[in-house]
Design a binder for these strands. Structure first.
Lengths: 205, 205
DNA sequence: ATCATTCTTGACTGATTGGTCAACTCTGGT
DNA sequence: ACCAGAGTTGACCAATCAGTCAAGAATGAT
């Protein structure tokens, strides 16, 4: 039961791998890589620790598998920005996609945040190559829009970073928001409208 | 060498406590509470592990001491918002104070971020009481400004959260920004101007 | 110079960590 | 019903963890 082999997965393999990754996501996203333990993940998954290590080579392999799945879906919303689209609509749609990801996959967002806080040791390659290239490409698109006077003249890099910060914030700092706003509050309430207003006014010519 | 006693600190005590807290900040802010080890902190501080425990009761006492120092300075910039000041200037000054804190104390920001990501178990009390009360107070001030038509009509809660997200972002995700923007870049370059533009346009009536 | 106090640490402990292994049970094709 | 391979786990291991302790070294007031 090693890494990627050509053998087709059995029904049991599919079920247990999913159980493990689901449990690991819960634990890693809350405690980070070093703070998480295999015993905790095993307990959360309802499996024995040796059984975990039957499906994954070691602790890092589980973590790597989670990050791999995550990074794919992380690029998609940014990649979907259409250079030939209506500039303001494209950017606002990107904001909307990102905040929906924070709402639907908050633990994935926190897993990512934990990794960055630790200096991104395990995804440095991804960030320096794929993410960097994609950001450079889309920043050029946005710069073009600004120079053509179709949106306000803002620094594209800061714009992209601010979109990340504002959207992921709702997932990463959800605990704080709930505590500050009270027990019966949903941090996402009004978030989409607020961010649409914010970026609309920022980009208006 | 226990907790808070009335005894005055000696020269050696002051020096070593500072060494320990400095080292602990470095380690805790990168790995979180559970991911950090006393051996690591001891090595970073250049002291032996038993010596660490001569100055602090246990691992948690070191962490608590760091957070305690932090939370004091965390409230100050928000508290400084003057209800009788010029609304837009007050809010922009707050943004400026926050981003300067991110620039000057990035590790403190990451320590805080780590704590929130883990569900804020050790500062839940602080958030639910002091921070919550202060946020409610300042949100009321901002709401008053909006209703008086002195700034645009935005949700004060979302406004405050977005200021936190955008400013702390430069410290918490600094590693990612450096990797995306290249080796010779300073993430803070242009950040202050960008945020001033962003919030100016958001709040303009 | 004396000496009580403060400071320091090597050697330790029991608990927990990631990971192994041999023996076991279950599954599905025949 | 059989059985080869897939799946499972109790018992274990070495390493690391937070924390203890007794004994020694440095300090500073007299």
């Amino acid at each position: 039961m090693n890494t990627a082999s050509a053998a087709p997965l059995t029904r049991i393999q599919r079920r247990n791998r999913k159980l493990i990754l689901e449990a690991a996501l819960e634990v890693f996203s809350q405690h980070g890589f070093r703070g998480a333990t295999l015993d905790q993940i095993a307990a959360e998954a309802g499996l024995s620790k040796p059984n975990l290590l039957y499906y994954f080579d070691n602790k890092e392999a589980i973590h790597r598998s989670l990050l791999g799945d995550l990074l794919d879906s992380w690029l998609a919303p940014l990649r979907a920005i259409d250079p030939d689209g209506e500039p303001r609509a494209e950017i606002l749609a990107y904001v909307r996609r990102k905040i929906q990801m924070s709402r639907d996959f908050p633990r994935e967002s926190r897993l990512f945040a934990n990794e960055i806080l630790q200096g991104a040791p395990r995804i440095e390659g991804f960030i320096r190559t794929e993410l960097r290239a994609l950001v450079a490409e889309k920043a050029a698109v946005i710069r073009g829009w600004a120079q053509a006077g179709r949106i306000a003249d803002v620094d594209p890099m800061h714009l992209i970073f601010s979109i990340w910060a504002l959207t992921q914030n709702y997932a990463d700092f959800e605990a704080q928001m709930r505590m500050v706003r009270g027990p019966h509050s949903d941090p996402f309430d009004g978030a989409e409208d607020y961010l649409e207003t914010l970026f609309s006014r920022l980009l208006a010519v």
